[in-house]
Design a protein around this nucleic acid. Structure first.
Lengths: 152, 152
DNA sequence: GTGTCTGCAAAGTCTTTGCACCATA
DNA sequence: TATGGTGCAAAGACTTTGCAGACAC
């Protein structure tokens, strides 16, 4: 992790009374590099390659913290394990998902994002008001069969 | 379950080489009555009240079957357990969800469904074509804080 | 130096699997 | 009666918790 980015995170951690530790730095690195949704184990394995002291527990604990901080989104695609990815910051890199019911493959798409975001903002506004619900994020998954599972 | 509905389900099961058994009948009953997303355990407990022979295993196995048949949707709200509800049939009773990050409460809403469904159909068409993905269903969750968890 | 963080091991939760018996068509 | 279905118990997968030692600030 380059210094400036580390400093930025250090600040965010310290703001909450937390510290920037090696495991945290490396977990953030992995998430930043991959840009894809990763399972806790994926992250553990990636970090483990360059820092074999890391424990899976630490990964879980820090992911939980990052989710609480709003830095990371925790997603469920229905394969029994949670996936994690950086949350949308000002819409950049934001995407939605196509989830295959058979092989559990997940395709990220960003094709209609402009239309979708516009539309969702409108909906969000209406829902916020009606249900007094403070909306922070959304998940859109389309379920079905991917190209290679359509044999039926 | 009234006779005609049972017959309808009997047909759907037999079409796939399956049978209509007591546990299946009761599980369907519970799902039909509640109209809400239920966990496997919720369903187990409901059925257990009137048929104490039921086993949790049977509930899981039948929910899996119903999901495969496309009759039931399996959802994950991030609390560690799966939720089940009848899938949209011709859009009736279809709804989306607001999920609270703190207390895990889930609010079903059906407020903008007409607009949303129209919009989603357009998107689905585009995605199907581009990714050769056969879309069967979708999930829309808004995450944030419900009325009573907004203290912060 | 103090309070947070960490890794290990163990426990917990939800879900699936193996197997012998039972019941539907 | 032939298959598919069931319940129980055990195993499996993912995640969380308890605790003593280590580290960031």
């Amino acid at each position: 992790m380059r210094g400036s980015r580390a400093q930025c995170w250090r600040g965010r951690f310290q703001g909450g009374g937390y510290r920037l530790t090696k495991p945290r730095e490396l977990i953030l690195d992995v998430l930043a590099k991959s840009k894809e949704h990763l399972s806790a184990e994926d992250i553990f394995l990636s970090v483990h390659k360059i820092y074999s002291n890391i424990g899976l527990t630490t990964v879980y604990r820090n992911l939980e913290l990052l989710v609480e901080m709003g830095a990371v989104a925790k997603l469920h695609f229905g394969n029994g394990k949670a996936s994690y990815e950086f949350s949308r910051d000002g819409e950049k890199d934001h995407h939605h998902h196509l989830v295959c019911r058979k092989c559990n493959k997940v395709i990220d798409y960003a094709d209609f994002m402009k239309e979708e975001e516009e539309f969702l903002q409108k909906i969000e506004k209406g829902l916020s008001k009606k249900y007094k619900f403070e909306i922070q994020d959304h998940v859109i998954h389309f379920h079905g069969f991917c190209k290679s599972c359509q044999t039926s």
